[in-house]
C-alpha cells in the first residue's frame, strides 16, 4: 500500500539516567529498533505496559525527540527535515491526563485556538468562529469558551484537548491513553466522539493504550511493545483470536472483561519485572516467559511472519534453531 502517512523505520532512542547517589549514569534504552506505520484514515493501536517505550515512540512521531538511529517519515518526507510547524499541521497529540494537558491560566477559547495562533492563521474573529465551530463539533457548549479549565469536568476537559488537536484539521492524531484517566461513563463518550470524528474528518489514529479492550474496539491493527521492541504486529481480530507472542497472551489474559464466574486468571508471569536499564540477555521477555527455552536467554529472536500474524519476535516461531524446551 502506498498511502502510508506516518512511518517509523527502525528508530532507536536512549536516555542517560542516574542510578543513585555517587553512581555513574547509565544508558536507558527506551526504544530499541521500532518500525511501525500508519495509513490514511486508519486506527492503529500501540499496546504495552508502562516503561515499554510507547510514550517515547509517540514523542518521536510528534517530532519532539529525534531518534538516535533510524528515521521517522511523515507523508513520505523525513521528519527531521520538516519545520515543527509543518509537522503540527499534519500530526497532533491528545494526552492522557486532561488536567495537565490544559494550561490552568488560559481560557478555553485561547487553549483551543493555540495552534491557529502559532501558525498565524486568520484574524481574531476568524479564530473565534473556528473555535466555536470546533467546540460544537466535539460536543462542548460554546458558553464554556471564556471559562477556565478548573471549571470543567474531566470529560469536558478531554473534549477541549480533542478540539485543540483537531482545529488545524490534521490528518493524524496520536492519542496517548486518551481515556485511561476518565470514569467509565466518560470513557465511552470520548471513544464515541473519537469514532465519529474519524468518520467525519478521515483521521488516522495512533492509539497508545494499555487497555486491550479499548484497542480492540477502536483499532484495526495493533503493535505490541515490550522493553523498547515491537514484539508482535497483527490485525486486531487475530490479536484477540490467536495471539502469537507469549507476552501478548499474558496481556490478553489480563484483560478483565465483565464476565462473572471466570475468576482472575493466573498470568504465570512471575514477579521479575522489566527493567530497561538492565535488559535481560537474548529475548528480553525470557525471565517472565512460561515457554522459555534454552535459546531464549542467549539469542535475540528475529521478527518472522507467522500465519495471519504479520510480525512476531519469538523463538517459538523461528525456523532455524529448534531447541528443546527447558
Amino acid at each position: 500500500m502506498t498511502d502510508v502517512v506516518l512511518e517509523a523505520r527502525d528508530v532507536h532512542c536512549s536516555f542517560k539516567v542516574s542510578t543513585g547517589f555517587m553512581r555513574p549514569k547509565r544508558l536507558l534504552r527506551a526504544v530499541n529498533g521500532v518500525s511501525l506505520n500508519l495509513r490514511a484514515g486508519e486506527s492503529v493501536g500501540l499496546v504495552g505496559e508502562s516503561g515499554c517505550g510507547k510514550t517515547t515512540v509517540a514523542m518521536m512521531l510528534l517530532g519532539l525527540i529525534r531518534p538516535a538511529r533510524g528515521e521517522v517519515r511523515l507523508d513520505g518526507l523525513p521528519m527531521h527535515e520538516l519545520d515543527q510547524r509543518d509537522i503540527a499541521r499534519r500530526v497532533q497529540p491528545i494526552f492522557q491526563d486532561p488536567y495537565s494537558s490544559l494550561n490552568p491560566r488560559k481560557r478555553i477559547a485561547d487553549i483551543i485556538a493555540l495552534p491557529l495562533r502559532v501558525h498565524r492563521m486568520g484574524s481574531t474573529d476568524d479564530r473565534r468562529k473556528k473555535v466555536v465551530e470546533m467546540m460544537d463539533m466535539v460536543g462542548l457548549s460554546p458558553r464554556y469558551a471564556d471559562s477556565y479549565p478548573d471549571q470543567l469536568s474531566g470529560g469536558q476537559r478531554q473534549r477541549v484537548a480533542i478540539a485543540r488537536a483537531l482545529i488545524m484539521r490534521p490528518r493524524i492524531v496520536i492519542c496517548d491513553e486518551p481515556t485511561s484517566s476518565l470514569d467509565v461513563s466518560m470513557q465511552s463518550q470520548i471513544l464515541n466522539l473519537l469514532l465519529d470524528l474519524q468518520r467525519e474528518l478521515g483521521l488516522a489514529y495512533l492509539l497508545i493504550s494499555h487497555n486491550l479492550a479499548v484497542v480492540e474496539h477502536m483499532a484495526v491493527r495493533a503493535y505490541v511493545m515490550y522493553l523498547g521492541r515491537v514484539v508482535e504486529e497483527t490485525d486486531s481480530e487475530q490479536l484477540f483470536r490467536a495471539p502469537a507472542h507469549p507476552y501478548t497472551r499474558a496481556l490478553l489474559a489480563s484483560v478483565l472483561t465483565p464476565e462473572p464466574g471466570r475468576g482472575v486468571p493466573d498470568t504465570h508471569l512471575g514477579v521479575a519485572y522489566a527493567n530497561s536499564i538492565d535488559p535481560p540477555s537474548g529475548c528480553t521477555f525470557h525471565p517472565r516467559c512460561t515457554k522459555a527455552m534454552a535459546v531464549c536467554s542467549t539469542i535475540v529472536p528475529h521478527p518472522v511472519t507467522h500465519g495471519a500474524t504479520r510480525h512476531v519476535e519469538c523463538h517459538l516461531y523461528s525456523e532455524a534453531p529448534n531447541p528443546a524446551p527447558v
Binding site: 470513557q187 464515541n192 479492550a213 477502536m218 484495526v220
Partner: peptide, 22 residues
C-alpha cells in the same frame, strides 16, 4: 444498566460501534 453498556467488551460489542453513554 447504563454503566454496563459503557464498556467495550471484545467479541460482544462490534468494533467501531457506538458504546452506550450516560
Amino acid at each position: 444498566q447504563a454503566l454496563l453498556r459503557c464498556i467495550p467488551v471484545p467479541g460482544r460489542v462490534k468494533r467501531g460501534e457506538h458504546l452506550g453513554s450516560i
